[in-house]
Design a protein around this nucleic acid. Sequence first.
RNA 1: GUCCCCAUCGUCUAGUCUGGCCUAGGACACUAGAUUUUCAAUCUAGCGACACGGGUUCGAAUCCCGUUGGGGGCGCCA
Length: 483
Amino acid sequence: MTNSRPLRARFAPSPTGRLHVGGARTALFNWLFARHHGGTLVLRIEDTDQERSTRPAEAALLTDLQWMGIDWDEGPDCGGPFGPYRQTERLALYAEHAARLVASGDAFACFCTDAELEVKRQAQIAAGGEPRYDGTCRDLPAAEVEARRNRGVASVTRFRVPSRPVHFEDNVRGRIEFGADTVGDFVLLRSNGLPTYNFACVVDDVAMQITHVIRGEDHLSNTLRQVLVYETLHFAQPVFAHVSLILGEDRSKLKKRAGQEGTYVDEYRDRGYLPDALVNFLALLGWSSATGDEVLTRERLRAEFDLGRVSRSPAIFDVQKLRWMAGEHVRAAPVAGLVSLAQPFLAAAGLPTDPLRVQAWILAFRDSIACLAEIPVRVRELLELGEPEPEAAAALQTPGARGLLALVDERWGTRTDLDGAAFKVLLQESGKALGLKGREVFMPARAALTGRIHGPDLPLLFDSLGAAAARERLRLHARGGAC
RNA sequence: GUCCCCAUCGUCUAGUCUGGCCUAGGACACUAGAUUUUCAAUCUAGCGACACGGGUUCGAAUCCCGUUGGGGGCGCCA
């Protein structure tokens, strides 16, 4: 169902909690799609659940999206020609359409209570059937409706579901068909006057002239209901695209409830992952580049994104692969950028943040980290020199080790211009003078400097430590020094 | 239970629409080797999959049917 209207996509979260990776992926696909085609992206807040929606959650949502580099053209914060963009601020619109449906006989008042409905549902399930509204109030005479209203009995407005099969075209799945009578009459307006999701969603997508609805597969059966509403209201339907879900390691839907570690976007921000890395990883969950490449910049993602390459089967969120990809992005990032991103993490850990030192640390550790929160951990390990590990102690006991360190110290003399590269030269020359092999000179030096036998390149380590600290540690083990 | 969706290495996937180029390609992880002063990074190699059963066809991972398995929905949540 292509049309020539200008392309408008939307992301419509409910502000009921933190943004989780599934929602983030949906937002990302919409963003990628809109930006790829030069269309408009709308951010709509679906806050009709007053119990659970909060303003702080909404603010957090925007923060998370912005951190990911997902921007929108119309939304609650920036307005737009089809606002307002919070559903609770559009109630008159829903009421109006609901009234139209009631007037045409396509909707009716229902006085059943929650408790009554729940009992019926349980009975239907027990009887081995599908739980659904049984039509109790479907054909109440107008006078009876009036009478109950006058008595002050609470009511909801239900959609009179027509008894006919429904089908729609899905951009990633093809034709989807539902037989007649697969759903019962569903609620349009609650007793408190607020619309339900399936109603508000249709009214708004139409009012906001949305042309493409890209959302999770969990909405497939909602789309059935929504299409019914589109049809009876004679609204033009958008193109639907249902993206498969992201599953947890237990293969079940990644729920908003407290789940496994790493299911919320803010966790990645807090850990100092590069947003482009998360974006890259999420994009590859259910989509792939035609080139087969996997480590992709945001620009390439945007240039190559294509709904036709979105996969139908669900994907499990593989934290291990995300960590690898995050590391790739760290290695590809400009050092200056990493320095400023690392500074807050160092400051929070009470560590120095002067740019030159931070740069030395970045250079030393960037090959082995996935996120910036790992920097202070590594720096602390480096700065806090404890007892040498057994292997390091052994390296310091090798014949010539202490003599070497002493010679280095002696040749170092009063020079103050020593950096990592110069230190390496000094080491090598001293070793040569004593007839030592590469390993015999580097291992004792490493052991003296860090108390360990593994770690980054020695010159990088030297610069990370600073000449003064390095020399101090060297002298500790030079000649007959204590252990 | 019922409706809908899905089904390729442990995981993400290419290939499926437009059957043959697929004795199924890549990536993560894992294993081994190379390289390096060590670790990491990097490079090379190895391991490893078309869920099953029927069709259709000269030929099927690709099309059809069934089975099984997995997921999602079935709310005055979204």
